[in-house]
Design a protein around this nucleic acid. Structure first.
Lengths: 118, 118
DNA sequence: CATCGTTATATTTAATCATATATAACAATA
DNA sequence: TATTGTTATATATGATTAAATATAACGATG
């Protein structure tokens, strides 16, 4: 396995962050499950936390990244909008570029680490 | 002022992280003040926290990044080793490269954000 | 050899953050 | 119109984290 750094990109917006690694994963989970609560369960995250993150994203961007509907036979649900998919894709691309840019340096730096005992 | 993303690079080592943004700033403060406690004061950080970070760095890498001395007329002090300076420089270079790699993408993404009210 | 401010460390206290719990509204459908 | 599982929201509880406090050792220097 190749040594890898944690690269955490976050886009600030006022007090909090419009998007970051956690919100990206949440978007993907909403995409695959069709609901905020199911996504939360999948990610071992309280519904409240998942909802707060969605709410934050929707308020930070010009348009909603997630559309929600309460009620109906199935109780309701949520889905990632086209706009949300665009943002998600841009974010993942940025992560990949940043990772590639420091790939060689990271490998070098790992040589300076102590052998991880215990 | 140009829109800028928070890019947080951290090098994992076992349980914790060998170096990251906070430790880099601390190294620079130790370099300029000559002591862990003075660096802590400068960064509004408890001595304990500063010391724990130094201890973590020194244990994570093959060689100490900070040399310390207790006692003496001035009470003692700390200084960043040549090895520490090398690591610090590598880390800062990685940050710069990562930033440059996503610079354009970040600018694009900022256009999708809502006007930040409040 | 007494003094000084620091390193080094443990323990207690406080602040922060996330989770758990509870409740109402929702709207399609049977 | 009763049922269903979700969204939406507030409040209370618990857990995690950082800070505050305390103490001993250090060692050059006057």
């Amino acid at each position: 396995m190749k040594p890898t750094a944690y690269i955490r990109i976050r886009i600030p917006h006022g007090e909090d962050f419009a998007i970051g690694p956690g919100k990206a994963i949440l978007l993907e989970a909403i995409q695959s499950t069709g609901s905020i609560s199911a996504a939360g369960r999948e990610l071992n995250m309280s519904y409240r936390r998942a909802w707060l993150l969605v709410d934050s994203m929707n308020r930070c961007f010009r348009k909603p990244l997630v559309d929600t509907a309460a009620g109906g036979r199935s109780g309701g649900g949520a889905h990632v909008t086209d706009f949300g998919l665009d943002v998600l894709q841009r974010f993942r691309a940025m992560e990949a570029k940043a990772r590639a840019a420091i790939d060689a340096d990271v490998a070098q730096l790992f040589h300076l680490l102590a052998g991880k005992r215990r």
